[in-house]
Write a protein that binds this DNA or RNA. Structure first.
Ligand code: MG
Ligand code: MG
Length: 364
DNA sequence: GGCATCACG
DNA sequence: ACGTACGTGATGCCC
């Protein structure tokens, strides 16, 4: 309410802050800020646009804070409270096995795969997910599984070496693209290395990377060129996957899950390039999904024997969350780690980080 | 019910 | 000149 009042003061009028249409009018017509951008229906007011406008006026930052709080309240606080089972203190989701095109699971009604964690306020919401009395939550999370799968599939020696030596891949990439020694990489450079690693697996271009890192396009292009120069097999592997897929009409994961991508032969360049990004990404997003599914099946079969009072609660793409008695947590921990790390054998090790705690923020 | 936005991996 | 990062689901607005 306080934020709302401040927003009306800064705007010089009252309006529905949740309406992008009304907000766009206030920002771009009344206040005449920035250079209005695009959407099908009007001005864009998304987080990237508002961040750019923040240098010109107080209002955008207030809107961003309002948006963030409003999202957390409506999507999580208000909605989840109504779904808590009477007297049980538990919420139940549906996991959908045939929705995501890559082979991932999805979760709905409610979605428990997108519970907040990235902000301070968000973590307060996640903290409400707790174990029963005398029980603990145990989270087991694959470390950089998609990049490891990419290393395996592409057979790139530098990537494989890095993972075999259990080095920090984001620091390695930073060192490669900046041409600086590992030990001299700063926090900021490591963060840029991380962004560039993600840029590759999503097929991001210089334009997108430059926006994300707030650098100019030429600089971003240098990073991307340096990446493919240092990890040459990744580039070759991408070409190989896509040329095969153009002929067969599909891409497949290491375990032969197929995704048909007809737009790979589109004559519309934009459509074709979007299909290429989706197709390439599917190979390792899908392989990672196959791996965690194999681990879940094995755990499901063996858990009654190995640790009868442990429950597998959630899967969040590269994480499994369990509830287990205080008494048996030390049995569960090495067992889950071993199953997840060794359910498949690749040319690089898979690493699983395990954490234990009373709530879903205390497990990290 | 489409669109814009934003929560997660 | 244009558009530009993969995969999801829920919410509020607006028609
Ligand atoms: Mg992880
Ligand atoms: Mg994770």
């Amino acid at each position: 309410d306080i934020l709302q009042k401040k927003i009306y003061e800064e705007a010089g009028c009252e309006f529905n802050i949740n309406s992008p249409k009304q907000l766009g009018k206030v920002l771009f017509e009344d206040l005449k800020l920035g250079t209005p951008k695009k959407t099908k229906t009007g001005y864009s007011t998304d987080v990237g646009v508002l961040e750019d406008l923040a240098s010109e006026h107080q209002l955008p930052e207030l809107i961003l804070e309002y948006r963030s709080l409003s999202k957390l309240k409506s999507t999580y606080i208000d909605a989840l409270i109504d779904l808590i089972k009477e007297g049980k203190g538990r919420v139940h989701t549906s996991f959908n096995q045939a929705v995501a095109a890559t082979g991932r699971l999805s979760s709905s009604d409610p979605n428990l795969q997108n519970i907040p964690i990235r902000t301070e306020v968000g973590r307060k919401i996640r903290k409400a997910f707790v174990a029963e009395p005398d029980m603990l939550l145990l989270s087991a999370d694959y470390s950089q599984i998609e990049l490891r799968v990419l290393a395996h599939l592409s057979k790139d020696e530098v990537l494989i070496d890095a993972f075999k030596n259990n080095e920090d891949i984001h620091t390695i990439t930073a060192s490669q693209i900046f041409g600086i020694k590992l030990k001299d990489i700063s926090k900021e450079q490591r963060a840029a290395g991380k962004t560039v690693n993600f840029a590759t697996i999503y097929g991001q271009g210089a334009f997108g990377l430059s926006k994300q890192l707030s650098i100019d396009v030429a600089e971003a292009k240098r990073y991307i060129d340096a990446y493919f120069k240092r990890y040459p097999k990744v580039d070759i592997y991408r070409d190989m996957v896509l040329s095969k897929a153009r002929e067969t009409g599909f891409v497949e994961t290491l375990f032969e899950r197929k995704r048909f991508v007809p737009d790979l032969n589109s004559k519309n360049i934009m459509v074709k390039q979007a299909a290429e990004r989706a197709a390439f990404n599917t190979v390792f997003q899908g392989t990672a999904a196959d791996i965690i599914k194999k681990a879940m099946i094995k755990l499901h079969m063996e858990l009654p024997d190995k640790c009868a009072d442990a429950k597998m609660l959630l899967q969040v793409h590269d994480e499994l969350l369990f509830e287990v008695s205080n008494k048996h947590v030390d049995i569960l921990k090495p067992y889950v780690k071993d199953v997840m790390e060794n359910v498949v054998q690749l040319d690089i090790p898979l690493i699983v980080d395990i954490g234990v705690g009373a709530s879903w923020v205390d497990v990290y």
